[in-house]
Every structure is written in structure tokens, then in C-alpha cells.
């Protein structure tokens, strides 16, 4: 199958690759860029495990082709870490509040929460629910996830003062 050249930025790093036009962005991130933090849950756009930031906007990477990312900037869960790979502030709040169990939905949850907090450091519960409403979690029942996002928001506000 013919290949197409793409250039994109992932977590601030530039990637150039030749890919099949049918390759999903999700598979590109995992299998070609080696960023396995983004997970595969349904490949039909419902579970949110594959969520990434696409030019800052949360999207489902299973519903997009790698070629469509040409020229765009992507952030994956790995990009939420500090420089040294240690958990970033949002990730630390998820740890502190134990906003996860098996960790499979977690990257998608973090991406959705990151997008929310980027524009709103004082979200209501309803706003938090809307932000993660497209991310399924089988383990937690969501309560500790909401608490984790609230904790991250309150730390963000404290840091901003």
C-alpha cells in the first residue's frame, strides 16, 4: 500500500514518518511513535481510552487517521509528565486521590481533565462530569476520579495565587 509522508509534533518533539493512509492515529502513536500510554478500548469512539490533545483540544485518536495529524501538535499522557518523567501536577493529584485502579482508562481521563483545567481552574462537579462524560471507567465508579480533578483544580488555584 502506498505511503504518505507526515510531520507532526508529539509532546513537543517532532516526528516525521511515512505511513499508510489507513493507519489510525491511535496505532501510529502506539506502534510507530512508541507512545504506549494512550490505550485502545473500543476503536469505535465510545470509551475515550484513546483520548489525546490535538492542537490542545481533546479528541479520540481511534477515530482519526495518522495522515490527518500531519502538521498538527499532539499531547499524549506521557506529555503531562514533568521533564524527568515524574508525574506532573494533574497526575500527582490522581495518585493522591487514587483516581484509578487498573489504570487502563487513566490516560484518557487525564487528557480530558487536562483539557478542562486548561480553561477552568475552578470547575463545578457538573463541569467535571461533562469533561469526562465521554471516558468510560469500569473500575472506579468515577467518584475518586472526580475528587482527583477537584484536588488538581484546588492545587492549581493555590499555585496561581
Amino acid at each position: 500500500m502506498s505511503q504518505r509522508e507526515i510531520n507532526l509534533s508529539i509532546n513537543g518533539k517532532t516526528y516525521a514518518a511515512a505511513v499508510e493512509p489507513r493507519l489510525s492515529l491511535l496505532d501510529f502513536l502506539r506502534d510507530h511513535a512508541g507512545l504506549t500510554g494512550t490505550h485502545v478500548g473500543c476503536e469505535h469512539g465510545v470509551c475515550g481510552a484513546c483520548s489525546i490533545l490535538f492542537d490542545g483540544v481533546p479528541i479520540r485518536s481511534c477515530l482519526m487517521l495518522a495522515v490527518q495529524a500531519d502538521g498538527h501538535a499532539i499531547t499524549t499522557v506521557e506529555g503531562l509528565c514533568n521533564e524527568d518523567g515524574a508525574p506532573g501536577p494533574l497526575q500527582d493529584a490522581f495518585q493522591e486521590a487514587h483516581g484509578l485502579q487498573c489504570g487502563y482508562c487513566t490516560p484518557g481521563m487525564l487528557i480530558s481533565a487536562q483539557a478542562l483545567l486548561a480553561g477552568n481552574s475552578d470547575p463545578s462537579i457538573a463541569e467535571i462530569k461533562d469533561a469526562i462524560g465521554g471516558n468510560l471507567c469500569r473500575c472506579t465508579g468515577y467518584v475518586q476520579i472526580i475528587e482527583a480533578i477537584q484536588l488538581a483544580a484546588s492545587r492549581l488555584r493555590e499555585a496561581g495565587q
Binding site: G37, V77, G85, F94, G103
Partner: peptide
């Protein structure tokens, strides 16, 4: 939790 939040599980 540490490995899961950093995407390194």
C-alpha cells in the same frame, strides 16, 4: 498508581 498516571504501565 504512579506507573499508570505516567502512562508507563
Amino acid at each position: 498508581d504512579r506507573r499508570f498516571v505516567t502512562g508507563t504501565g
